[in-house]
């Protein structure tokens, strides 16, 4: 389904399908009008784009720019490391790791998908979501299964990327060039 089609369907479903409407409404903090009681308490409002004329850039470039700005991640991956000793690499990695981890924490608040210790028993019930649970090993028959949790999985608890509002020509700039004046 392309995006135009999806948008149009969404548009009409809002009118004709109450169930869909109720599902969609929270995304727009739209409870009151559709009859869900709510006190006028605030919701986390994302930063509003000031004007439409500004260019929107890909979130992926935005994230890359953020990781480079705060954690030098692109510098790190773009540099050939074959000629360096492990100690040299290790010294640099510590900082890159610390700063990139801080970005991940702030932007995504990444938490384990399954709050269980890895290596312990894990039941898998019928109707499980294959997007959330991946089965490995001797997969046969139908659920319920009883397996061992090998990886707890990760989930982004939020996704708050910086808002970018630069010019069209700069839309793919991950890091500006730096020129020092004396």
């Amino acid at each position: 389904m392309n995006r135009v089609e999806l948008a149009l369907r969404t548009f009409f479903w809002i009118f004709f399908k109450k169930e869909f409407r109720d599902k969609i409404a929270p995304y727009f903090d739209y409870k009151r009008q559709i009859g869900v009681e709510e006190e006028a308490e605030e919701k986390a409002v994302p930063v509003v784009l000031p004007q439409e004329k500004k260019t929107r850039r890909s979130d992926a470039v935005g994230l890359l720019a953020l990781l480079q700005r705060e954690g030098r991640l692109v510098d790190f991956f773009k540099e050939p490391i074959d000629s360096y000793s492990d100690a040299q690499i290790g010294a640099a990695v510590r900082d890159v790791h610390k700063d990139c981890a801080a970005v991940l924490e702030r932007v995504f608040d990444i938490i384990p998908l399954v709050e269980k210790e890895e290596g312990t028993q894990m039941p898998v019930l019928p109707g499980f979501d294959p997007d959330q649970i991946r089965l490995t090993g001797n997969v046969a028959g139908n659920p319920p299964y009883n397996g061992i949790l090998r990886h707890c999985g990760w989930k982004a608890n939020r996704c708050e990327l910086p808002l970018w509002q630069g010019a069209e020509e700069a839309v793919n700039v991950v890091a500006p060039a730096e020129v020092e004046l004396n």
Binding site: D75, F76, E79, Y84, Q88, A92, D95, V96
Partner: peptide
């Protein structure tokens, strides 16, 4: 604990001092 100053240019590891 190592105090590290990363290389300034795009050569991150090469310019790092500790």
């Amino acid at each position: 604990y190592p105090v590290t100053i990363l290389g300034r240019g795009s050569k991150l590891i090469g310019g790092t001092v500790t």
